[in-house]
């Protein structure tokens, strides 16, 4: 099997299956979360939700004003990383050309120079995010394996994409680098709904969920104990 056949497979069935998994998997997350919110609200003892506060907090976390206030450098680095990671895959001229081939329509692209710059920024920011996570004790203690791994995995398609676009820098063959690029991109499609990257759709709901958690009736803790058969033990 030549690498061309493998590439064809990765760009065909694997990509479509991955895209379907991404869309449906994220849709599943949203549906389950919404349903959970409604369910929790129905059971809440106190149904007055401070809507304005929740909306402000949600927006604050979504647009990182909260994070910037807490730790400026970490926050800025994350902000730049997100901008690059969101813009480049969607608005890269080469990607839009591929969409145009299969869908029949495209959309305005970023200038290639800007895309290149953002790609390099994304790779550097991903690495520094991991370094920052390791350096700061509090974030190190709070991190799971995927918190370290995911930024680096996200950086792979960006690094390989840069080498595909700039053959003079590419120490390997063009086909092989394209293979790595497409494969890591496909892999991400499958990983997004299964890892923390699903925060791309779940983030707007987190504030309302933690708000609702405070609205359970006062005696609900004892009921949990009852349900577990540990009614008289301290929780």
């Amino acid at each position: 099997m030549t690498i061309d056949v493998l590439l064809q497979w990765l760009r065909g069935p694997v990509f479509w299956a991955g895209l379907a998994f991404l869309v449906l998997g994220l849709g599943r997350h949203v549906a389950i979360t919404l349903w959970g919110i409604v369910r929790t609200w129905n059971r809440a003892g106190d149904k007055t939700i401070p809507v304005r506060q929740v909306v402000r907090a949600s927006l604050g976390w979504m647009f990182l004003t909260q994070g910037l206030k807490n730790r400026l450098l970490f926050g800025l680095n994350t902000l730049i990383f997100h901008i690059a990671v969101i813009l480049v895959p969607i608005f890269l001229a080469g990607h839009i050309a591929l969409w145009k081939q299969s869908l029949g329509f495209g959309w305005p692209a970023l200038p290639n120079g800007l895309s290149t710059a953002l790609t390099i920024i994304a790779v550097i920011a991903a690495v520094t995010i991991v370094i920052q996570r390791i350096v700061f004790k509090a974030s190190r203690k709070l991190s799971r394996f995927q918190d370290f791994a995911m930024p680096l995995i996200v950086a792979i398609p960006f690094a390989t994409g840069f080498l595909v676009m700039h053959p003079a820098w590419n120490p390997f063959s063009h086909q092989f680098m394209l293979f790595l690029h497409v494969m890591s991109g496909d892999l991400l499609l499958f990983l997004i709904p299964l890892t923390k990257i699903s925060h791309m759709v779940l983030l707007p709901g987190t504030q309302i969920i933690s708000e609702l958690a405070w609205h359970f009736p006062p005696e609900s803790g004892r009921r949990v104990g009852e349900a577990l058969g540990k009614a008289n033990e301290p929780i």
């Binding site: 069935p13 479509w16 299956a17 991955g18 379907a20 998994f21 449906l24 998997g25 599943r28 389950i32």
Partner: peptide, 17 residues
């Protein structure tokens, strides 16, 4: 929902989309 989703995506691998 997870089982159904996984099965659907696995099937897509082998289908001529």
């Amino acid at each position: 929902s997870l089982v159904a989703l996984m099965a659907a995506v696995a099937a897509l691998f082998f289908l001529p989309v």
